[in-house]
Amino acid sequence: MSCWALIPVKAPGLGKTRLARALAPDEREALVCAMFRHVLATARACAAIDRICILGPSRPGLCKGLVRLPDSGSDLNRALGSALGAIATTGPDRVVVLPADLPCLTTGDIDRSRACPQVWSAWRPIGMVRGPTLSR
């Protein structure tokens, strides 16, 4: 079974805005980048992931071998729907959606997410599961 990871990430300067009272814009951006790099490195280290797709604009730290899908900027659900529709045409059996802000994500978390029962999408029967959260 082929499994891809889809990592939605906001454009530079738009992430973690609820922390604006506590962190300066450059500190928020550094936090977003650090968490994104961690999620990306964890997905790359997971043997169960065959391909990684980034949903959003180009960001520092993106390396070769990643598929970047455009984000319309409207809302996350609409952007995910569009991305999953595009991914479904290329044929993975399952897509694990991993938010870019999971600082404690492990390869075991991804493996467990991949093993979850499938959620059927409207575009075609493609297994989609959402990544873990801190409230385990």
Rank of each mutant, 00 (worst) to 15 (best):
M1S: 13
S2E: 10
C3D: 07
C3Y: 06
W4L: 05
A5G: 03
L6K: 00
I7K: 00
P8C: 05
V9D: 05
K10Y: 07
K10V: 15
A11R: 09
P12I: 04
P12V: 06
G13Q: 04
G15D: 10
T17P: 13
R18M: 15
L19G: 07
L19Q: 09
L19T: 07
A22W: 15
L23I: 03
L23F: 09
P25K: 10
D26C: 14
D26L: 15
E27N: 05
R28K: 09
R28G: 03
R28I: 02
E29L: 07
A30F: 06
L31H: 03
V32D: 13
C33Y: 15
A34M: 09
F36W: 12
F36I: 03
R37H: 12
R37Y: 06
V39F: 00
L40E: 04
L40T: 00
L40G: 00
A41R: 13
T42I: 10
A43Q: 04
A45M: 07
C46V: 04
A48G: 11
I49H: 02
I49K: 01
I49D: 03
R51S: 09
I52R: 01
C53I: 01
I54V: 05
I54G: 01
L55P: 00
G56I: 00
G56N: 01
S58F: 13
S58G: 12
L62A: 11
V67G: 07
V67T: 13
R68T: 03
P70V: 03
G73T: 06
S74A: 14
D75A: 14
D75G: 10
N77V: 09
R78K: 13
A79N: 04
L80N: 01
A83R: 02
L84M: 00
L84Y: 01
G85N: 13
G85P: 05
G85A: 14
A86V: 08
A86G: 07
I87S: 02
I87K: 01
A88W: 04
T89Y: 14
T89S: 14
P92R: 00
P92C: 04
D93W: 12
D93F: 07
D93Y: 11
R94P: 02
R94N: 06
R94A: 08
V95Q: 04
V97A: 10
L98A: 03
A100C: 11
L102P: 00
P103C: 01
T106V: 03
G108A: 13
G108N: 13
D111C: 13
R112S: 11
R112W: 07
R114S: 09
P117H: 07
W120E: 13
P125G: 11
I126L: 14
I126Y: 02
G127Y: 00
M128Q: 07
M128H: 10
V129C: 14
G131M: 00
P132A: 14
T133Q: 11
T133V: 13
L134H: 11
R136F: 13
R136E: 12
R136N: 11
